[in-house]
Write a protein that binds this DNA or RNA. Structure first.
Lengths: 192, 192, 192, 192
DNA sequence: TACTAAACGAGACGGTACGTCGGGTCTTTAG
DNA sequence: CTAAAGACCCGACGTACCGTCTCGTTTAGTA
């Protein structure tokens, strides 16, 4: 009913998918800075005009690639487990050089496009952030965690620590998630 | 002996400074992505060739601008105070939209140049990180902080939280530094 | 019997006329070079596909616009008068900057399409050429003109002179037709 | 003193010549309409930017190609001979399909650029026109030609006739120049 | 006082990518 | 079966920068 009857040739879903997948490939291989619309179009077997018809900037393409889940969001899937579990999953996921490079690329994309920024960070870190904050609030309510912990701020700290190490290219050692949980929350892994 | 007696016209220190300062100006005004060598040269009143003679890429110019302190590193100067003091200084410094934008620009610069990355993050967050870790270790040793705190990891968490909020464009409320210290360290501001 | 019973929706005469009229408008306003099928379709309120269904190239549209008399052929209507009358009519008609521009546009159209070329020149200059040649042959036969005049060649010269001045953007003075007839035919206006 | 000391890398004469020569080649092979700056640059082995640096439009390139004599102007060289000689030279020169196509291309170029128009026609037909008018005026003064001939108008007619046949793609028979001279001037070839 | 050597400005060069326009084609719904 | 709408691939447009390359000029240090 607010449905405006579609006229003309319908948009090619195949072109859309090919574009987003090519974007992911190129983000992995050349990074955000050397990512070009020309390159995306040619790698996707799509005309440049078709790319411009649907996206306004390369940051928008990257954002949609993420929003569509074409770029797998590291750690977000594990957002139901325990606190240390989430952190270790994030650490493990970002431990692969490929994914770490992707995260850095997304940070670059977000740096010069506020619109993309929100979309990217909400999708990448938002769910994880929410899951962590919920678990922590739970723990505080149950008395399992210190009462002076602000769940939202704690979630900032936990995610921020991981992100900081990725951006500064410092590998996180295997048990980093446990150490981090213990340090911030004063809790041993299984306890929370 | 490792001194290769300088011949010919000496390098113009004025051109060098003008280039780095123009880089800072442009990073502020247009961001890293739209920063061009052409633009830097013309803003600095310097020929493009002179820029290319001394730097290999725009990320290298940005890196040197930081290394030379031409770009003021927010928070690094306060690296002598108390923990909450450092955090509040960082928060206040990054609270200005100008500096926040600069940090995002630098994150973008670091994302696609490992060499610049190290230089930038070492200069930007390294001193602060070291100061925090030292203070925290002190507190733990004095028994003023929980013994299960890993000072290095805690510093990651504190800096990471602030960085995370800047990158995701979330304003940090006035007392955020205090909240953060309390949450991560289980300490009220004055205590540490 | 050679009538192939028409099926389906009949061709829209309105679309056809609108296309040809838009072509004329645009030829006047922007010239042949900047004339585009896109522009014709949009000015005519017709879809691009409809234009392509009925014409193969923009030169063909221009040709049909002429053949249909949508573009008024300057001088052709006067093809029944005296020699100097025809020439003066041509000169007057081509004297207006609008028509002169149109003729130059048609020359451009003819330059890169042999098919359009024949159609255009036959329609534009053919009738005039034939009328002139006929009148001249008459005059020669009657002894009113020099016997060494070849009527076809003389018609070439008369039309060519006018065309030459239009193409080189030289205005023809008021009495140019008389001068031309006198020079080529050795005849004063009323005599032939 | 009006000499503005040249700075920077000097313009490459080779690039300039290559561009003009490629323009000539392409005018011959594809005509003015399908002539593209992209095509000129690539055929000349020159970058597109270099073409744009020195010429504002393709019509300007064509004009300079003519002004430099890179495009050989048919008939202009023969501007010293007798009237019929000039005409026959023109006819012979334009008799080759290659040159005829070139003339049509130049007519198209002139049709949509007044600036190019003057340059082209002055170079192409101007000298011939002047030579013819001079010879005819001579003949009239010597009493060898009819006194009612206006030399300028007669030159228009002679050149116009040849041009008209080229533009309408009519081959001129071998003796066409003689016929034309006889018809317009009332003179047998050798007489003038 | 030259001579040498390097840095400097200016600016042209071959390129790559930009974002746009138009060309022809194809695919859908509406008449 | 035509018309409209509009997406598609393609190729050219004119512009902005890229990184490189001459040039003439400037500014040191030798010689």
């Amino acid at each position: 009913m607010p449905e405006p009857i579609p006229r003309g040739r319908p948009r090619s879903e195949q072109s859309r998918r090919a574009t987003l997948e090519a974007t992911r490939e190129l983000l992995h291989s050349v990074g955000y800075d050397r990512l070009t619309i020309e390159g995306i179009a040619s790698a996707a077997g799509v005309s440049r005009q078709t790319v411009y018809r649907w996206w306004r900037a390369k940051s928008a393409i990257v954002a949609e690639a993420v929003l569509d889940g074409v770029i797998i969001l590291p750690g977000a899937a594990a957002a139901g487990g325990s606190i240390a579990g989430i952190l270790n999953a994030m650490g493990a996921s970002l431990g692969s050089p490929e994914n770490a490079g992707l995260v850095r690329a997304l940070a670059a994309a977000a740096a010069d496009d506020p619109a993309a920024s929100e979309a990217l960070y909400e999708r990448m870190t938002g769910p994880t952030h929410a899951a962590l904050a919920r678990s922590i609030a739970d723990g505080v309510a149950r008395g399992a965690l210190r009462p002076d912990i602000d769940p939202e701020v704690a979630a900032d700290a936990l995610i921020g620590a991981v992100l900081y190490r990725v951006l500064t290219r410092q590998d996180s050692p295997p048990g980093y998630g446990d150490d981090l949980a213990a340090t911030v929350l004063g809790a041993t892994p299984g306890t929370a």
